[in-house]
Nucleic acid binder design. Structure first.
Lengths: 112, 112
DNA sequence: TTCATTTGCAACCATGCAGTAATATTAAAA
DNA sequence: TTTTAATATTACTGCATGGTTGCAAATGAA
């Protein structure tokens, strides 16, 4: 019997939210925005070294899904983090991964 | 220039961790394990209604990636949650999604 | 031994999606 | 107007992976 039912639609929404965070390029973009605040597409392209079309695609997706806010000004489009839980999520996962790395003597360095 | 560099390998590990949580079936299994503790494959099949081969596949993957612990006893194999941050992650995302649903008058019911 | 139960594995198919190149769109500047 | 810059979109390719089927392996019971 099905117990502890969670509505199918909620499972799917949660899964889709996690899926947005399951790409290194998107995490890289989010990390930049977290550290430097609102940035234009061009700034993000320069900061991360990824191709413009790819950056634009990922930013547009994250904005459509509610993770980012979008503001147009002249030729530039500025993106910023809109989901207040993002940093907490990444901090949790980063911490756990560092912990696992520590336990297996497989150390890593760098900021979250 | 690349600023606020995060090691590529860390980005990939974080992405892979989020990816594990980006499937409704896996979230369903984790939810059962969170609510009822250690369970056998068969119990999880009955509790969720998914096919045995599919459940086994997802459980094996999550165990290999460190999310679950695996214990064999006779014919049965028991899985349990090994990553202590899982419930916090799901709670954060569920809460945010409920908040967004509330803000858009698109209410949902059910437990996390 | 033979049979039944539980679990895992291999092979297959279909879908999704990341990356890229080329082009389109928009807006400002000359 | 023409040109230039910034961003988005389209079409395409290739790869990863979720679901299924069928079977194999392991274990215990008859």
């Amino acid at each position: 019997m099905k117990k502890n039912m969670v509505p199918e639609v909620l499972l799917e929404r949660v899964a889709r939210r996690f899926k947005l965070l399951s790409e290194p390029v998107r995490l890289d973009l989010l990390n930049q925005l977290q550290a430097r605040g609102e940035m234009s597409v061009q700034e993000l392209v320069e900061a991360t070294g990824h191709m413009q079309a790819n950056v634009s695609k990922h930013l547009g997706l994250m904005a459509r899904e509610g993770l980012l806010a979008r503001r147009k000004e002249g030729l530039n489009v500025y993106y910023s983090i809109a989901d207040p839980t993002l940093s907490a999520l990444c901090t949790l996962v980063c911490g756990q991964i560092r912990q696992e790395a520590f336990e297996t003597q497989d150390m890593m360095s760098g900021e979250s």
